[in-house]
Design a protein around this nucleic acid. Structure first.
Lengths: 173, 173
DNA sequence: AGTACCATGTAAGCCGTTACATGATTCT
DNA sequence: AGAATCATGTAACGGCTTACATGGTACT
């Protein structure tokens, strides 16, 4: 049921069309919850039927702009604060990491190096986003979330560098 | 297609019955890839048909013990080393964190405190597992993975404590 | 006129969860 | 004898991805 609240949450930030939501899912929620337009449009229709969102304007190209209703805001808050979170995750990267001990040191190093490149790229993106938020008081809470991302990725980078160093001792000359 | 490799990977660690795999998914892969027995038994049948696993024994209660074949090992290694990882994740917790800036400081603090309790519990489990691995040379690589988990959770704990302190200044007396 | 992008929808198929169903062995 | 646990399977349903389908607007 998370899609429902992801859409509701994005509309609580600002009214949007389905097309805009699709891009926002790809830009901002890529790392935790993905959704394609083929899922978003039917979900908007369901939310509208439940009076949790409403159409507030129609633009060019027959686009419809949706906004969250007071009932939608209440439902979103209820979910965030009162509903028990589902802590389960689905992460292929986590599975891969879990299985790396099966590889011999040389193969393992290949995967660690690939992961390191990815983590460093993510870190660069996060730092850029963070730098572009200086002084924006309104998004202070959001800026702190970026800081968490930076800290977590920094820890992962350090760990990967240690593993690469360790496996280059053992597995190679 | 990750389920296939998760099963293959667990059988590369040791031969198991479907029932044992079900428990291993719940114990060891809970945090990255879940699977129920209703998914595991059909997958074992498919893997057997593809000669990636084979039945190596039948025990009491008509149980079948599966083992990975050489072809299965090759396919697993190929996936781990050569296939491009799918970095996408599906995490309700990530979505919730992304949406917390929408809450007022008092509500936000409630969610941070709930998360902190969870992170502390995870940390305790990880530290216990890590302590129970002293000197087991064979699982050295696995022990280092637990260390990564401990470091990441420690960073999250510190961050959550900071947020709670900050929101108790602003949102309350 | 053609290409690129904006914009919305539906349909088929795969994957995963929940529920249904059955039977064997062990423990009390 | 009854309960708990071991052990394996199938069926129904829901969520998500990929593919199909259509049309509007802007730019060159």
């Amino acid at each position: 049921m998370s899609l429902r609240y992801a859409v509701l949450g994005l509309l609580a930030r600002r009214p949007s069309t389905g097309y805009e939501l699709t891009r926002t899912f790809d830009r901002s929620l890529r790392s935790s919850w993905q959704a394609r337009h083929s899922q978003i449009y039917p979900e908007l229709a369901k939310l509208e039927a439940a009076d949790l969102v409403e159409v507030v304007g129609q633009g060019a190209r027959r686009s419809k702009t949706y906004a969250i209703t007071p009932a939608g805001r209440a439902e979103l808050r209820r979910w965030l604060v009162e509903a028990e979170p589902d802590r389960s995750q689905r992460s292929e990267s986590g599975l891969r990491l879990f299985l790396t001990p099966l590889l011999d040191p040389a193969d393992r190093q290949v995967t660690y190096e690939r992961d390191l490149a990815h983590v460093e790229q993510e870190l660069a993106v996060l730092k850029e986003v963070h730098a572009g938020m200086e002084g924006a008081t309104e998004s202070e809470v959001f800026a702190r979330q970026i800081e968490l991302g930076i800290r977590v990725h920094t820890v992962m980078r350090g760990w990967l560098q240690e593993q690469i160093k360790a496996s280059s001792h053992t597995g190679r000359g």
